[in-house]
Structure formats: structure tokens, C-alpha cells
Design a protein around this nucleic acid. Sequence first.
DNA 1: TTGAAAGCGGTACCAA
DNA 2: TTGGTACCGCTTTCAA
Lengths: 342, 342
Amino acid sequence: MSVAKKVTINDVALVAGVSVSTVSLVLSGKGRISPATGQRVNEAVEQLGFVRNRQAASLRGGQSGVIGLIVRDLTSPFYAELTAGLTEALEAQGRMVFLLHGGREADQLLSRLDMLLTQGVDGVIIAGASGVGSELCERAAQKGVPLVFASRASYLDEADTLRPDNMQAAQMLTEHLIRRGHQKIAWLGGKSSSLTRAERVGGYCSTLIKYGLPFHSEWVVECESSQKKAAEAMGALLRSNPTISAVICYNDIIAMGAWFGLIRAGRQSGEGGVETFFDQQVALGAFADVGENALDDLPIVWATTPAREMGYTLADRIMQRIEKSDVQAGHQIVSARLVTVK
Amino acid sequence: MSVAKKVTINDVALVAGVSVSTVSLVLSGKGRISPATGQRVNEAVEQLGFVRNRQAASLRGGQSGVIGLIVRDLTSPFYAELTAGLTEALEAQGRMVFLLHGGREADQLLSRLDMLLTQGVDGVIIAGASGVGSELCERAAQKGVPLVFASRASYLDEADTLRPDNMQAAQMLTEHLIRRGHQKIAWLGGKSSSLTRAERVGGYCSTLIKYGLPFHSEWVVECESSQKKAAEAMGALLRSNPTISAVICYNDIIAMGAWFGLIRAGRQSGEGGVETFFDQQVALGAFADVGENALDDLPIVWATTPAREMGYTLADRIMQRIEKSDVQAGHQIVSARLVTVK
DNA sequence: TTGAAAGCGGTACCAA
DNA sequence: TTGGTACCGCTTTCAA
């Protein structure tokens, strides 16, 4: 099959017996065109199988209908879900996203941004940046392209930012356990360099204090995200602090590991609250990026970050910025939900 | 900060004291330009902070440097990884990816393809399509845009396709268990409607037969991807077939569930081979989408599908198709690897 | 080696 | 309500 000669508005105009400007007007729905003409044009479009070339369209001045997205790590379920949400929302509006995976370093990010600017995007979203905002903002502003950041923790001060409410999530989780009767609640997982973790630990800590419960720094255990390591750390924690009755896990992997640790220690988790089991059994709470509905065999209370909704919200936000250039940059926070596996 | 007037090649030409054509030549490295002129132009570019508008560039005839990618489900680790690999490879060449998430229905997919064609992409990749190829191929061919499919199983006959070698993966896994001394090997998980599963079960089955081992249809258990369900199914399976000494799990969730099932049945898995444990313990093998290095606490043999490599391969393939239009469409298969957690 | 000018496919302003 | 036409930013002959 040979490549068909591309059909342009000129062809359409010719077939419809009108001028190119008329075709353009019909296409964009602007200007008042008579129904009859509109009809004729549309028929010609149909007949010729014409598809409008957006590159050319945006060249003259219009929008490209394209949003650039730079993601740090698409492999992480959180960002995958966020990306899915964003593209879904944008596609529903007939827009598209350019996907780039961003480097960690500022200049890498800058070069990615330039690629997007080069392509004439209407707006840019950077997901998972960490405190390298000002140059980027400047560059984008220079081009008149709105820039929005999305991340897991609050890094940037000066920019338009969307992020999950890690503190609230941790508070919710902690409070849930407290309501269940737990008083000695420990923390397992995450690296101390993680800002997300810092915020979560903050929420955990503040809730303990709020309820007048003890907060020991030895009860906050660092641990890399490996089941094996988590299981070991769990064992060690319980051995040195046998009275701990609940543990909050930094993520799903830690949670699985913690559970294995419990099994080995013969202290399987139960959702039953401390009053029934005294402190024989240990309850588990954990953070999850997405609805971990597959992990349904563990009696764990999950605090899920609504990554998909964040994607939707991002779509709204960037479109606002694009349409009304006077929208103030600011921070926006998305709340977590509690999910109890039954 | 006010939006700086965009700088074009005209500005550059003006500053450098040359014509726009010269600037264009310098930019694209074509035509023989004197070092001195090149120097001057580059300085002007630097000074003005000029970035070339690719839209305009591709409008005139060149390539856009953009590949369209339609993914069925970015949320699945397999496709997330594949997407990451693809964008990584493409970005390294200065190209970019348009990301769309594709619907299941043929016409949805077709409209997505049109969006991409509208934007003037150089090529299109559809990941996770299932047997709706011909119209799509036609449409793309009409526009002269190469189209490549990537999926988890072999659906399409007529198109350029890349997919993992599910059979080989299953054969490898099964053979590994057989070499370990297992003779009664069961299968757990997946829905019978899944083509991927069908291929894997085929590999499992053929290997059993090849080694003269028994193949019972009751040993092939369907199960949805839930830990709880998998644990229950595992228990039931072992109760009615106590001599089974190894189980191959359809994915990581099933594997975790299966392991819980083993624990409850007191038949924890070991990698030790049947000769040591007789059939007291049950060995576990499983398929995983990515290197599940986080799942390091279970003695499970994993067959991992190299999703990332598939992304790289896809990048190569589409670029070949773009550069040499005479490349024959065909099927390409990517092998799995065995990973033993130590 | 460099410059002038004609597009690429549309849009948008101004006339008609 | 339509048509004419000057662009958008860049590439690419064709001359100079």
C-alpha cells in the first residue's frame, strides 16, 4: 500500500468549494459559519479523510494541546498511577502528554525541560523533583509556559506544588491504632534521608504526643525496603522491646517483611485490638501507594495515597494555569485514605 | 517576570550577521559552512538563549523526533517498566515519547492513533493490544507512519510485533524444578481466558511431558490474583494432592499467597530439593514482571520477564522502521531470565 | 560558502 | 458570513 498524499485544508477547501479560511473556521468552531457551509466542509473532511495537523496549527499561535510530563521514576507504583491519572484526564479533553523521565540532577532536569519547550508544549509538570526549582521555574517563565510540581513530600517553596498529605496520613494511621487500644506503637522502615518518611514520622510522633503516649526514638527504626531486612529488623525490635503492641510500616514491602518477622517471633498480627490479645500479638499499620487490593491476606491497616486522584488534580491545575495566566502559584495537598482489609 | 519575546533564527541571524539559511545550516550541521561563520552563529545562539522550535522544523518536512506510545495499562508493573525502558532509550537519542493510554476497544484505539497522527509522530507503538490490528495498521500505513505492537502474548499475525517468550520462561522454570528433583509439579493462578497464562501453561506442560513426568489437569488450578484466594487454593490443592512437591505460580501475588498457604499447612517451601525434605516441604517457582528484588525473603525461583529490555528493543525496532522503510514486519521474541533469591 | 525566496499546513486579521 | 493573504519558525532548493 502506497503512502497516500497527505490531504490538507487546501484539498478540503477545494472539494467543499470554499476558501481555506472558511475551512479553518469550521474546524475550530470559531466564527459564525452558515450551517450549509459547515455541512459541506464536514462532508469534504469526511470524504478525504482529512486530519488536522496540530503542529502547523500551534505554530501560528494557538495552543499545541500538549502537556509535558517529567517523571523521576515511572517504575514506582506511585508515579505510574499518577501518570495514568494525568494522561487519562488530559486525553478526555483531547490533549496529550509528552513523557520524559527526569534525571535527579538539576541540569539534567533543565535539559529535559528544554526538550519540552522546544516542542512547544502548553505546560509542564515535573513529578518527583527535589529542591531544584528556581532555575527551572525561571526557564519556563521565560517562555511563558506554566510549570507545576508534583511530589511525595514538600521540597519547593517558591513553586506551584501538589503533594500528598503525608502528615495527615500518618496521623490517621496512628490514631486508628490508638483507638484500637494500642499505646506502645513503633515505626519501621524508610531511610532517614527521605523527606516523605520525615513527614510521616512527624505525623506519627505528633499523634502519640497528642494522646499523651510515649515516644521513644529507639522505637523508630530505619530499614531499607527489603522483606528480609524488614523481617530481621522487626525481630530485633520486638526482642528488645517486648511490650510494643503495634508497628507502623513505611511501605508495603516493609509491611510484608514485618509480617514475616512476626510469624517467626510467633506474634502474628491481629486486628483485634490489644485488649483481647494483651500484648501477645502485634498489630500492623502501613502506607501504600495504591490500593493494594492484592495484598488482602494480611491483617494490616493501610493508609493509601491517592496517586490517581493526584493525577486528575494535576490535570486541572495545569489547565487552569494555562488558561488563566493570573492563577497564583501555591501549594495544594491531597489527603490519604484509610483502608482496612477485611 | 515578563515573558521574553521568543527568539527565532531570525534574531540569531541578525546578531551573527548572517542569513537565516546559514543559521539553519549551522544548526543542522548540513552544508559546508566556514568555521568562522559557524563560530559566530553559535555564539549568537548562546548569547540569545535560542532554542530551536521542532514543530516548525518538522513542519517543513523533517522528522518530528517524536514516537507515539499507546499503553493499555500503565499501572501494571510490566508496562510501566517497558515504558520506562522505551523512553529512556529514545531520550538518549534526543527523541521523545507521546504517551496515551489506550482503550480496549478497536475504535478507541483508532481514535488514539489519530491523535498521534495528528501530532505528526514519526512512529507509533501500541503496547498491550489484543487482536484489533488490521484497521490500525492500515490507517498508519496510509500516513506512512510505522507501527509496532508490543504485548505479553502473541495476538497479532499480520503486524510487527514484540513480545516476551512466555513458553520459554515456563519451560525454564519447570526444568529448574525438575532438575531439583521434583516430579509432581502443580500450577497455580491466572484466569483461563488469559493468553499469557495459556502460553505459560503450555511451556510447563510440554516440559513435564518432555521429561516423562505426569501431567494432571487437576494440578492446574485457576485462581484470581489475590493473596487470600491463592492461599486458600494452595491449601485445597495440597490437601487433595499431598504428594505434590512443587508449585509454579502465575505471578508474584499468587506466589505470596501460595507461601502463606504453605505456612498454614506447615509445609514451608525450601529450595533444598526434594531429596532432603521428601515431600514434606513444597518448592515454589513463579513468574515476575520485573526483578522483584524487594521480595527477597521467600525461597522462590523467579522467571522474570525483561520488560525494560523490551522497551529498549522496541526503541531499536521502531527507529529501524522509521529510518529504513523497507524493513520487513515480523515477530520478535524476548527471553526471560531465571532469578534465584539467595 | 552564503543568501534569497518559496514553501510546510494552518490561523487570523481585514475586506468584501 | 466568507474570502484574501500575511504570517508562524524553520528547511531547502537554487543562485550568487
